[in-house]
């Protein structure tokens, strides 16, 4: 699969972003290869969410560059829809789904299929939803006419991840996907990530405060400290001690 060994799937170099006076992100740099799980860790306010929002197109960076499959993203084209078209999808912390809408609607968020120009093609949506849920081996979601707020946190997160992979994206970004979940549901989501990676070769960027989870899932771990991606560890060179030190001290 790796014909382009020279250029990674995604390359982020010295990206920065401030909001008014706050420099949320000073220097974000990393790369990501196909089928890889990259974890981003760091304390509260370290700039993790800002970094992935830039990568997702939601924020235009002040400086730095992003290269996807060897082609740089121009400032003028930096937008959510552009990044989606280039294969990047995000499951945002707390903001992935619309709670009062059904699973199919959420899966198709921003891409509702139309009939006769203005009507919702409900059948196409339901069929594709069943398809995606089957592909993910999610069997617990049965009633597709219920608002997702009536589902469990794990089911909701499955739908959010399903939404991210349903459109054939190469890179799925997960911002604290299990922060609000219990142990069983966390295991369910972790299984989903591994399945999707193994079966579809999808790459993941995982932001998490759960260091055990990070060590279970990630191939590499990127530490963010005061808006700088300061260190990177390979899976087998990580101990919890070293991670905690890196997160709290930037070392």
């Amino acid at each position: 699969m790796n014909n382009h060994d020279a250029s990674p799937l995604l390359l982020v170099e010295h990206v920065s972003k401030s909001f008014g006076g706050v420099q949320a992100l000073r220097d974000g740099s990393f790369d990501l290869n196909r089928g890889e799980v990259l974890a981003i860790v760091g304390g509260n306010g370290a700039g993790k969410s800002t970094l992935i929002k830039v990568v997702a197109g939601a924020h235009v960076p002040d400086g730095g560059r992003i290269v996807i499959k060897g082609r740089e993203v121009l400032r003028s084209e930096h937008s959510v829809s552009h990044m989606q078209a280039r294969g990047i999808e995000v499951v945002y912390q707390d903001l992935a789904l619309v709670p009062n809408m059904t699973a199919p609607y959420n899966l198709f968020l921003g891409r509702i299929p139309k009939k006769w120009g203005i009507f919702v093609d409900e059948r196409a949506m339901r069929e594709k939803t069943r398809d995606v849920l089957a592909k993910l081996n999610v069997t617990t979601v049965q009633d597709l006419s219920q608002p997702i707020s009536s589902m469990s946190g794990g089911q909701q997160q499955s739908i959010a991840i399903g939404r991210a992979i349903a459109w054939g994206s190469d890179i799925v970004i997960l911002d604290e996907p299990t922060a609000a979940l219990g142990p069983n549901e966390t295991a369910e989501v972790e299984r989903l990530v591994e399945d999707v990676r193994d079966q579809h070769g999808t790459s993941f960027i995982l932001i998490s405060h759960n260091l055990d989870q990070v060590r279970r899932l990630a191939d590499r771990i990127l530490v963010t400290h005061h808006g700088v991606t300061s260190r990177e560890f390979k899976r087998d060179e990580i101990t919890s001690d070293r991670l905690v030190k890196a997160i709290t001290l930037g070392e």
Partner: peptide, 9 residues
């Protein structure tokens, strides 16, 4: 949740 809609473009 209009924020979610904004985030998906």
């Amino acid at each position: 949740n209009e924020k979610v809609l904004r985030l998906v473009g």
